[in-house]
Design a protein around this nucleic acid. Structure first.
Lengths: 226, 226
DNA sequence: ACGCTACATGAACCTAGATTCATTTCTCTG
DNA sequence: CAGAGAAATGAATCTAGGTTCATGTAGCGT
């Protein structure tokens, strides 16, 4: 089954690979364009024509690569969630063994991902409604998985006696929300805080609520606000 | 100028008042219907026809009382914000002088308002985009005002030495967000928490981060989780 | 009862924007 | 260089749902 000469219609493996690569690239181009339109149009709804114009392709092409508007939307959202899935665990591992350091690293990584995809994050809240039930379920599912690294480090911290015995799931979601808030309420926070201030202040506040009193002194540097 | 007989086209004051009252009532009926549709349709977009059906009136009538879909939407959202404006300060005053008690009362009142308007709250995040700039600005403005009671009690608490010297504006918005989260992430929290548990846990967590260490013992009852 | 006005109806209209598909352009292989 | 797919185009459709308005109906003062 190796000889490509057998049948002109049956492309060789290298061909397939090349084609696949090109398609991959196109998909990404379109995805990026969609993200950019959201960026620019800000709070306006995103039309297919606008995305096509931004990507400098025709509307029809989008339908070749994504089934329709819903799938494009879903793809944009999933793209963000994937960024979480790769960035956050990496950040946690990179920082060492101290549970509180790990917690802070995880939270900071969250915030950085959000900051990278600020408009797409808002989009998730705005447009999830227009997805079908399956799509919404998928997003919820992934969002929950996304909090798992946080839940994990919280558990470690509690077991190690560094953190108070809180409900890790609730606290993880709280932290996720505070990260989301950087996108959702950016119009408010940006009046007084830059990204770094925001993260530092939130870290300080959260740790004051989480760190076991005995361990306070050890983490003084993280507990002080801006 | 009192005799109504002077001119049949000039209604007397009582007439005007009666008319006003009837219109008021209609408006409320429509508003409530709109809220109910959101409730039922859950995450689907709300169509004028659906609202009309729910209110058991014709589509056209909605246009008599509200200029169009945007204004109806805006009215629903403003309705929630008004509830904050009346409920929260009342709850704070009702509870006494202790700054921490006042803070807790304020937060709890927030959560109760959100719980009353759970779907409208989600709607605010979803549909603000479809309002014009003026409408969005109005909402933002009111939302900020809505946090003022919280900012106020936080300041009192800090000045009284009961709370650590945090940034009251940021913390107030955090608390607002945690309250919103009860609506936004209800699908997640409801799996493990009822309303009361949610409030109690969040209060405990927040106070651990806020109360001056020296004052901890005084508020033990509020600091313990469920 | 009469007429006058405000209140109410809902089918028909209109628009934005998603989707399609007949046609054209590109890219290889033989 | 032909010519067979694959890729890309974009004007023409289709549709959901917001908006209008010609046509009732109800209440009330005379």
């Amino acid at each position: 089954m190796s000889s490509a000469a057998l049948d002109g219609t049956m492309p060789s493996d290298p061909d397939l690979a090349a084609r696949g690569a090109r398609q991959q690239q196109r998909s990404r181009q379109l995805l990026d364009a969609a993200a950019r339109v959201m960026e620019r149009e800000g709070s306006q709804a995103v039309s297919m024509q606008a995305v096509a114009a931004e990507a400098e392709v025709s509307v029809g092409l989008i339908y070749r690569y994504f089934g329709g508007k819903h799938e494009l939307l879903l793809a944009v959202i999933l793209n963000v969630l994937e960024d979480f899935a790769t960035t956050v665990p990496a950040a946690v591992e990179a920082v060492g063994d101290d549970p509180v350091d790990r917690l802070v690293a995880a939270f900071r990584a969250y915030c950085e991902v959000i900051d990278r995809h600020r408009h797409a994050t808002v989009l998730t809240y705005r447009e999830s409604k227009s997805l079908d039930e399956a799509g919404r379920a998928r997003i919820k599912q992934l969002e929950v998985e996304t909090t798992q690294p946080l839940v994990q480090v919280l558990r470690e911290g509690i077991d190690a006696g560094a953190l108070r015995p809180v409900d890790p799931e609730m606290v993880a979601y709280n932290l996720l929300l505070v990260a989301h808030a950087w996108a959702l309420k950016h119009w408010y926070f940006e009046r007084t805080l830059g990204f770094e201030d925001y993260v530092r202040n939130q870290v300080s506040l959260a740790l004051h609520g989480l760190v076991e009193p005995r361990q306070r002194r050890r983490y003084a540097r993280l507990l002080s606000a801006s």
